[in-house]
């Protein structure tokens, strides 16, 4: 299981709504932790705790700039979720497309007396 842990942790990390809010905030660009805390009205230790989780799963990166630590969204880290959602949705969308074709095919004999081609 260890090999797959990272993928699983990304799902886990974004299951927490406060962490999703942080990610949405970081879409606008790199931000220091106190800006994040103030914007979202979290206490700084709380914001730091969430940022640590996000960093551990590779969803954000951090760099020091003078006395500040700037957090940045890492879009690549969201790929497992994107891939998963895409797989699930395309599974059903494509199945439904096929069902649609199949149902049309079944109903053809009754409806195709006036074929134009």
């Amino acid at each position: 299981m260890a090999r797959l842990a990272t993928t699983a942790d990304v799902f886990n990390a974004v299951a927490e709504p406060q962490r999703r809010r942080i990610l949405n905030l970081l879409v606008r660009g790199e931000r220091p932790v106190n800006f994040i805390a103030v914007s979202l009205r979290y206490k700084q230790p709380q914001a730091s705790k969430h940022l640590r989780v996000l960093r551990e799963v590779g969803l954000v990166s951090v760099r020091g700039a003078g006395q500040q630590r700037l957090y940045k969204l890492n879009g690549k880290g969201l790929k497992p979720i994107h891939d998963w959602a895409k797989t699930f949705e395309s599974f059903w969308n494509e199945s439904f497309d096929r069902l649609d074709d199949y149902l049309n095919e079944l109903q053809k004999p009754e409806k195709s007396h006036e074929r134009k081609e």
């Binding site: 974004v14 949405n24 969201l78």
Partner: peptide, 20 residues
């Protein structure tokens, strides 16, 4: 895990997914 994926699929994630 389900809630995380659900959030990715059907909630207000537009900005984040645009970046992705």
């Amino acid at each position: 895990t389900f809630d995380g994926a659900h959030g990715g699929m059907q909630q207000g994630w537009t900005g984040t997914f645009e970046q992705l």
